[in-house]
Amino acid sequence: MKRKKNNKTGLYMLGGVVFIYIGLFLFDSAKALQAVEEAFGVLKMVLPIVLVVFFLMGLVNITIDKEKISRHFGKESGMKGWFYAISAGVLSHGPAYVWYPFLQNLREHGAKDSLVFAFLYARSIKIPWIPLMVSYFGLSFTVFFSLYIVVASLLQGLVVEAFSKAKR
């Protein structure tokens, strides 16, 4: 599942969004301005996480070689790899999209797709928000919900692995 890089994709996306904003401004400038303010609020929230992710990417590129990634997250990683991927997913902060570049970096260094899938699904468990979830939906809901998410993370990864093997 490796891909060819297209450096223009991001610029096209940003251009498209700017175009949408121009349209919204022409239609209702006050509401469009409100959307810009909301976007700045989101940017302020994600910026520290983005910086951490970029730092981690640099660290992986400079200090960790493909052999190490392969040992912990690659074909030889075994049970340890699943444990690391799911735990890291549960503990990771911020929106999923800020983690995409880091995860792609790990894939390029030999991390298995199945572990990236498991990481991304395990992110549904949000430890800081657990008390709020308990207060809204109850303790038993929160426990079963979290438990099934861990199982689903593992199953998703295993499905991907099975299909990758079948393809080979």
């Binding site: 994709t9 991001g10 509401k31 959307a35 810009v36 976007a39 609020g41 989101v42 800020v98 570049p101």
Partner: peptide
């Protein structure tokens, strides 16, 4: 990677702003 990711992130943040407003 950074050159590609930064405008993408800004685009997604822009879309989130639109969604939260509308």
């Amino acid at each position: 990677m950074l050159k590609m990711v930064t405008p993408m992130l800004l685009a997604v943040v822009g879309l989130v702003g639109i969604f939260k407003t509308y």
